[in-house]
Computed example of a mutant assay.
Amino acid sequence: MNAQNVIAKELSIETVHGPLAVTYWDPAVQSPKSPLIMFHDSLGAISLWRQFPALLALKTGRRVIAYDRFGFGKSAIRTDKLSADFVAQEPALVLPILKEEFGFSSFIAMGHSVGGAMAIEAAAQFPNDCASLVTIAAQTFAEDVTLNGIREAKKLFADPAQLQRLEKYHGPRTEWVVSAWIDTWLSDEFQQWTLNDALPKIICPALVIHGSDDEYGSTIHTDIISKKTSGPVTVEILQGGHHMPHRESEDFVLTLIEEFLA
């Protein structure tokens, strides 16, 4: 596949919360199909998706829209503390902005890691608009596996060199980004977070992708999504896969998504 056959455009949407950085990819052949909205992970940004969105647009024939959450990448700087319900707040805040900017009603929600949880919330909060749901390495509660992985990451980020690596993507936001991940997930308030209320509200088809050896979440999350979601669910466990299936097995994951949406 040649990602050069996709047209990519960057824009900054002015909002009451400050600028929202967005990039979208259009396949060379325009399609009326519902666009894919991508929710990034806890340290993520548009740029950290790398070539995946472009290849996704090419593979599915759909517009793909990714954005930097407020406080991340090139979006508005934040200095506040994330609330314990930030996962549910994200699609409620951003989807109306994207809908107004791009003029779509129906969409496909897709996310990686905590972005997968945000995609689940998007499908739950907008059940009549969300045509399909795709999660990659999503968590549904604050599992010990996840928290232990974050504690190990906290030790790594005690090294200034690790922060400097992230500055390439987040600039002056970097320390806030790391704190928003580590301090929020390890806080007492967040230990009660789950998607138990959101999952039964999902009526669209879902594709749930997870690595068997994911260091930030076991396959218990795929079981929970399968059992509690009201719509049909397709589960794909990548044997030997870790927390980044879309990087570790890019072609395979792209094909899974293409076939699911077809």
Rank of each mutant, 00 (worst) to 15 (best):
A3Y: 14
N5E: 13
V6P: 00
P19C: 06
A21I: 01
V22M: 11
T23R: 15
D26P: 06
A28C: 08
A28S: 13
P32C: 01
K33C: 00
L36W: 04
F39M: 03
H40L: 02
H40Q: 11
S42G: 15
L43N: 06
I46V: 14
I46T: 09
T60S: 09
Y67T: 01
F72T: 01
I77Q: 14
R78T: 02
T79Y: 02
D80S: 12
D80Q: 14
D85P: 01
F86R: 07
F86C: 06
V87P: 11
Q89Y: 01
P91A: 09
P91S: 07
P91F: 02
P96L: 01
P96I: 06
L98C: 10
L98Y: 01
E100Q: 15
F102N: 02
F104P: 12
S105W: 02
A117H: 04
A122P: 02
A124W: 13
P127V: 03
P127N: 06
S132D: 09
S132C: 09
T135A: 04
K155Q: 15
A158Y: 00
D159P: 07
P160T: 03
Q162K: 14
L163T: 11
Q164E: 15
Q164F: 07
Q164W: 02
R165P: 00
R165M: 04
E167W: 08
H170G: 10
G171C: 03
G171H: 10
P172Q: 06
R173S: 14
V178K: 02
A180F: 12
W185F: 14
E189M: 05
Q191R: 15
W193F: 13
N196P: 00
N196L: 12
D197C: 10
P200K: 04
C204T: 07
A206H: 09
A206V: 07
H210Y: 05
S212T: 13
D213R: 14
Y216M: 05
G217C: 04
I220M: 11
I225G: 10
T229P: 06
S230M: 05
S230K: 13
G231F: 03
G231S: 05
G231L: 05
T234E: 12
V235H: 05
Q239Y: 07
H242R: 12
M244V: 15
H246I: 02
D251A: 14
D251P: 09
F252V: 10
T255H: 12
L256C: 10
L256T: 03
I257S: 02
E258P: 00
L261E: 10
L261R: 05
A262R: 15
